[in-house]
Design a protein around this nucleic acid. Structure first.
Length: 293
DNA sequence: CGGCTTTGACCTGCGC
DNA sequence: GCGCAGGTCAAAGCCG
C-alpha cells in the first residue's frame, strides 16, 4: 500500500479502511497494523457498529492509526456525536479521567464550568449580534442554518470497500441522495446520501475506486438513532424483518449471488475479506468484533 | 401526490 | 487573499 493510497482515506476523525487491493486476491496484508488489532466483541452486529457511540478509535484502531493523530481528534467531538444528538453518552475515554489525573481534574472542574458558562454566554451574545447582522444581509446571500464562525464538526467515519456492480449497496436503511460530485483524480463521481429518517443524521458517501472500478467505497458518517429502517414507500419489504446486520446485508447477500459478482468487505479495523457473500452473515459478527482490553 | 434523483449553484475549509 | 476541492442546498423533473 502506498502512502498516497493511505492519504486518500485518512482524514481527521476518519476510520481508515485498509484498502490494499491485493486483498482481492486473497492475500492478507503483512503489515503490523492489521496484525496487531484485537478481535472485537462477537456480540455486536454491523448495525451496532454503525450505531456505536464512539467508534472509539482510541480503543478500536491500531496503534499506528492512533499515532497518526487521525484518531485522537475524535475525542474532541461532543458527546452528542452521532445523529439525533444526546443519545450518545460520552465515551469512557473522554469522560472518565484517569486515576492519576483525577484529583487535579476535580479541582479544576468548577472553575472550568464557570469558564465554560461564561464562554457560552459570550458566544450566544456574539451569535445574536451576528444574527441581527445576518438578517440585514439576508437579501444578499442565501440563508444558511449554520452559524457563522461555527466550525463544522465531523462525525466519526469509517469506510469499507465492496466489490460490486451496483454503486448503492442495500444496507437495510433507506437513503436519500442529496448530491453528487466529481472527485479529483477519479473518473467516477462521489454520491452523497442521507438517512431518510427525520431524526437521523447519518450520512454516507459512495464512490468507486479509481484504481479498480469494480470496487465501491462506502463511507458512513454518524450513527443511526433508530432501530428500524425508515419504511419504504409502497413497500413492506424493509419492515418485514428487523434491521439487524444480517438482514441488512441480506439484500446485498442476494446481489452477491449474481454471477461474477464478488464481494469483499473490509473492516477498517481488521481488514477482513469476504470472498463471496455466502460468508457474509457468518462473518459479519466477526467483522464487528470489539477490541478486548 | 409524495418521495426520490439529478444537477447547478453556493458555502466552507484548507493549502499556498 | 485566492483558488481549489469537498460538501451541501434546493429547484426541477421523474416515477410509482
Amino acid at each position: 500500500m502506498s502512502a498516497d493510497d493511505r492519504d486518500l482515506y485518512f482524514h481527521d476523525d476518519f476510520f481508515y479502511a485498509e484498502r490494499d487491493l491485493s486483498l482481492l486476491s486473497g492475500e492478507m496484508p503483512s503489515g503490523a497494523a492489521i496484525g496487531t488489532l484485537q478481535p472485537l466483541s462477537p456480540i455486536m452486529s454491523f448495525d451496532d457498529y454503525l450505531k456505536l457511540d464512539a467508534f472509539d478509535p482510541g480503543e478500536l484502531a491500531s496503534p499506528e492509526l492512533v499515532a497518526d493523530g487521525a484518531v485522537n481528534s475524535t475525542n474532541n467531538l461532543t458527546p452528542s456525536t452521532g445523529c439525533g444528538g444526546g443519545t450518545s453518552p460520552a465515551s469512557p475515554r473522554s469522560s472518565v479521567p484517569s486515576s492519576s489525573t483525577e484529583a487535579a481534574g476535580e479541582e479544576d472542574t468548577s472553575r472550568r464550568k464557570k469558564d465554560h458558562l461564561k464562554q457560552e454566554k459570550e458566544e450566544i451574545e456574539k451569535d445574536q449580534k451576528l444574527q441581527s447582522k445576518a438578517d440585514n444581509d439576508k437579501s444578499k446571500t442565501l440563508s444558511k442554518p449554520k452559524k457563522r464562525g461555527e466550525k463544522r464538526r465531523r462525525e466519526p467515519r469509517f469506510a469499507f470497500m465492496t466489490k460490486s456492480e451496483v454503486d448503492h449497496l442495500e444496507d437495510g436503511y433507506r437513503w436519500r441522495k442529496y448530491g453528487q460530485k466529481a472527485v479529483k483524480n477519479s473518473p467516477f463521481p462521489r454520491s452523497y446520501y442521507r438517512c431518510t429518517s427525520q431524526t437521523c443524521l447519518v450520512k454516507k458517501t459512495v464512490e468507486r475506486s479509481s484504481q479498480d472500478p469494480a470496487i465501491v467505497v462506502t463511507t458512513y458518517e454518524g450513527k443511526h438513532t433508530h432501530h428500524s429502517p425508515a419504511p419504504a414507500r409502497g413497500s413492506t419489504q424493509s419492515l418485514a424483518s428487523p434491521p439487524t446486520a444480517s438482514t441488512s446485508f441480506c439484500h446485498h447477500h442476494h446481489l452477491m449471488h449474481q454471477p461474477n459478482l464478488q464481494c469483499f468487505l473490509q473492516s477498517p479495523l481488521q481488514g477482513f475479506q469476504f470472498s463471496g457473500c455466502d460468508l457474509l452473515q457468518d462473518i459479519l459478527p466477526s467483522f464487528t468484533q470489539k477490541t478486548q482490553p
